[in-house]
Design a protein around this nucleic acid. Structure first.
Length: 491
RNA sequence: GCCCCCAUCGUCUAGUGGACUAGGACGCGGCCCUUUCAAGGCCACGACCGGGGUUCGAAUCCCCGUGGGGGCACCA
């Protein structure tokens, strides 16, 4: 396949979300696989809706995901600028070409007038569409009026007869009766282009070979191919991706669903993912597989995805998101990280809780906690006690199942004796000694080790006991058991 | 209202007319392992939306229903 040039072209009007991330991913994969370029273009022509900081969030999000672009607003490139508000003259120039070729015309209708006819059409149960008022103004007159400074837009002169055949790579030919099509606004009265013109012009100028975008564009797809054809340009390959549905499958996934997702530690916004303990690998793998059919072996790294990706195996049907699957992919990728990589990623989660991380200890606990982590921040639940001076178990937790407080205290006392008598509490030394005690006492391992676990780690669920005790160290362990013993004796 | 798109286990999907007793993954249930929790291993449950065609043969092609989704701005 020839090198593909693809682009991710979001508008800076909100947070970078899941759907955007997946669109960017597919565009990235295709470009990288074919040895082409992936670029970022900011579609900020709706000045009123532009949100300060949104562009930076998009950039940060792509960077976090590891979807590095070859050209973009912050790094420039051969076709700069990559921010549409900085390309105003370019669109003006192309709009004029269309007007000169009778493919577009200035429209002097005011928003009020348009809204009025719109309401009337609605009342008559008609399709709201442009009435064509300015379509037939003689070009000379129109040119004079706009030259005189009369406020106007520029509309596309859509063919009123015939059929438009648009070809989508996933769906084949889509035929639309031109009567259904409208004379859409290309240039707004503020002089800036609408998406329809801007995107087509830029994709052409920037030599985009594959337009990968959401299926919400399918409605204006016929318009877009008409614009491209009016210019006489070669069409890119059009790939309209399926939409993401709410977990229930009822309706499109929207920003509002994030509140619901947040309840169980998930989000639809990329900016939240890191805080929630997700890895870029997990998020990417998860997003990739909604809409891309991989037969088997679906745990994939980014480079494996680059190898295996194909726009031919994309699916056109909507996909309901499943956050449990995100958990699974995240956990799987965490386990595949090298110990060094994992400890580097874990450290911030400990420090953000105010814990002082000893790198030596961190290294040692990795093998103990790695297969227990679903999200990176789970390291707190399984490992925070390694970095604390003291633990504070609740007295009730210290009482083993089937025993009372007094009996549990006996056990703690005996364990303390045994461990005190040992020069080292390496797991290799401590475990046999304690197992021998379990044997002779007639208690279950669960009872004895349970008490020790709560005493030394402060919690009922922890990494393996003996390995943990070894890392905590002899002095601290003895001291913690002593404290636990006192707690039990007070009950 | 009009237009467009989609349709395989609960969910994501494989399947491109015979290799389908419909495969994989998540989840769910069970068992094994086991000091807790995980991880891992094994097993089970579980789907071709309905009706008509075409064909020797249809999950696969066509039509009609139904269901779901998207869109109908001087927003993207």
């Amino acid at each position: 396949m020839k090198p593909a040039r693809t682009r991710f072209a979001p508008s800076p009007t909100g947070h970078l979300h899941l759907g955007g991330a997946r669109t960017a991913l597919y565009a990235y994969l295709l470009a990288k696989q074919t040895g082409g370029q992936f670029l970022l273009r900011i579609e900020d022509t709706d000045v009123k809706r532009t949100i300060p900081g949104a562009e930076q969030e998009i950039i940060d999000g792509l960077h976090w995901l590891g979807l590095d672009y070859d050209e973009g607003p912050d790094i420039g490139g051969k076709f700069a600028p990559y921010r549409q508000t900085e390309r105003r003259e370019i669109y003006q120039r192309y709009a004029k070409i269309l007007i000169d070729n009778d493919k577009a015309y200035p429209c002097f209708c005011t928003p009020d007038q348009l809204e009025k006819t719109r309401q009337e059409q609605l009342k008559r149960k008609e399709n709201p569409r442009y009435a064509g008022t300015c379509r037939n103004i003689p070009p000379a007159e129109a040119a004079k009026r706009s030259a005189d400074g009369e406020a106007h837009t520029v509309r596309f002169k859509m063919a009123q007869e015939g059929v438009t055949i648009a070809h989508d790579h996933l769906r084949g030919d889509i035929a639309t009766d031109n009567k259904q099509l409208n004379d859409q606004v290309l240039i707004k009265s503020d002089g800036l282009p609408t998406y329809h013109l801007a995107a087509m012009v830029d994709d052409h100028e920037m030599q985009i070979t594959h337009v990968i975008r959401g299926s919400e564009w399918l409605g204006s797809f016929p318009l877009h191919v008409n614009i491209v054809r009016a210019f006489g340009w070669e069409e890119p390959t059009w790939v309209h991706l399926s939409v993401f549905l709410k977990p229930s499958g009822k309706g499109k996934l929207s920003k509002r669903d994030s509140a619901e997702a947040n309840k169980d530690g998930h989000s639809v916004f990329i900016k939240d993912m890191e805080d929630l303990g997700f890895t870029p690998e997990g998020v990417l793998n998860w997003a990739a597989l909604m809409g891309w059919g991989v037969a088997e072996d679906d745990v994939l790294t980014l480079s494996q995805m680059i190898e295996r990706f194909s726009i031919d195996s994309l699916t056109p049907s909507p996909a309901a998101v499943n956050f449990q699957k995100l958990d699974h992919f995240n956990a799987t990728h965490i386990r595949r990280l090298t110990p060094e990589d994992l400890s580097a990623r874990l450290k911030p989660y400990f420090t953000r809780e105010g814990l002082k991380v000893n790198d030596d200890v961190l290294q040692k606990i990795i093998p103990l906690i790695r297969e227990r982590l679903t999200t990176l921040d789970d390291c707190l639940a399984f490992g925070a006690f390694f970095f604390k001076e003291d633990v504070s178990p609740t007295p009730e937790d210290l009482i083993a199942k089937g025993l009372d407080a007094k009996q549990s205290a006996e056990v703690a006392k005996k364990c303390l004796e045994i461990l005190s008598s040992l020069a080292s509490i390496d797991h290799a030394t401590a475990e046999p000694a304690l197992r021998a005690y379990v044997e002779e006492s007639g208690l279950t391992p669960n009872q004895v080790f349970g008490i020790l676990r709560v005493a030394t780690t402060g919690q009922k669920v922890s990494p393996p006991l003996f390995e943990s005790m070894e890392i905590i160290g002899r002095e601290k362990c003895l001291q913690r058991i002593q404290t636990a013993l006192q707690l039990l004796e007070k009950i």
